[in-house]
Simulated assay, not measured.
Amino acid sequence: MDRQLISHIAHRDHPIAAPIDDAQLERLLRRARLRPEARILDLGCGGAEWTMRALELYPEATADGVDVSEAALTSAAGEAARRGLTDRMRLHHLAAADFTAGEPYDLVLCVGATHAFGGLTETLHAVRRHLHPAGQALVGEGFWEKPPPPQTLARLGAEPEEYADLAGTVNRAEDAGYATVYAYTSTRADWDEYEWSWTGSLTRWALDHPGPDGDAALAAARDHRDMWLNGYRDILGFVTLLLRLGSR
């Protein structure tokens, strides 16, 4: 199965697509304190749940969502129609790094998608190109809760310097020219809810679709679960930073 389709199915029961719950997502968006007619950009939007929540909180705002997954964007379009948001949300099927716009944005999101740019620092440089000077960025990134052992790095296909610890992650953001105005650090409970939903949603779909695709989905769910439970659980953390342009 296509990996993008697997990811889309796996996020059905946790559409936020990050180890964050509804209350914290809303708190992060409210802390942005956007102007009424704000322009919002979500780079790597997936099913665009963050985008739609922002539009619901700021009913005069408009948004662009960008993603490479056709399945996720098709789902996002249907959900936007159901929630009456179609007229205020534009979806773009292309790589986040290739997106261009004629006007800057008040809020740029990139949550759990910094890999699209090659890492946190590169993502923040890319975000700056889209951001109004007084705008804000909401960026979700992994960090090491504790030094990862070699076997965990091997399972993740990661290098030790791919992530920093929490303090180092904040420093990386501020070294890129941003000031941190708020953040949320995901808890173990947040992670467990996210991972059990990810693997469970994919497993349920696999059992309902016997055949080659179902077999592939079930194998992906079991491999992911093993990598989490026997690999990065309590080692890989996640923080969502609310940032403004500024010096340290």
Rank of each mutant, 00 (worst) to 15 (best):
Q4F: 14
D192R: 11
D21M: 02
E70T: 14
R27N: 05
R129A: 15
L34C: 07
L107P: 08
V170L: 15
V170D: 14
G157I: 05
H93F: 13
L29P: 01
R129F: 14
A81W: 08
H130W: 14
A77V: 00
A63P: 10
Q24L: 06
L41N: 01
W196D: 09
V239D: 02
T100M: 07
P160Y: 10
S69L: 07
W50E: 03
E26P: 03
E70V: 08
I9R: 01
D22T: 07
L166D: 06
L55V: 06
P212K: 14
D190V: 00
G78R: 07
L241E: 09
A18F: 09
L107Y: 03
D190P: 00
A167H: 01
P212N: 13
W198C: 12
G119Y: 03
E193W: 12
G246F: 12
P210D: 11
L138E: 06
R204L: 10
A183P: 00
H11G: 06
R248W: 07
D98G: 10
L245F: 01
A173T: 15
G237C: 12
T169D: 11
A96Y: 07
T114K: 05
V66W: 08
W205Q: 09
A176N: 11
R172S: 10
R248A: 00
R233V: 08
T187Q: 01
L43K: 07
G246S: 13
D213K: 13
Y184W: 12
P59C: 02
A216M: 06
T123F: 09
G84I: 05
C110T: 11
A54N: 04
R39E: 09
P147N: 07
V127S: 05
T51V: 03
A158F: 04
E195T: 02
D42P: 04
R155P: 00
P133H: 05
A113G: 11
A164H: 07
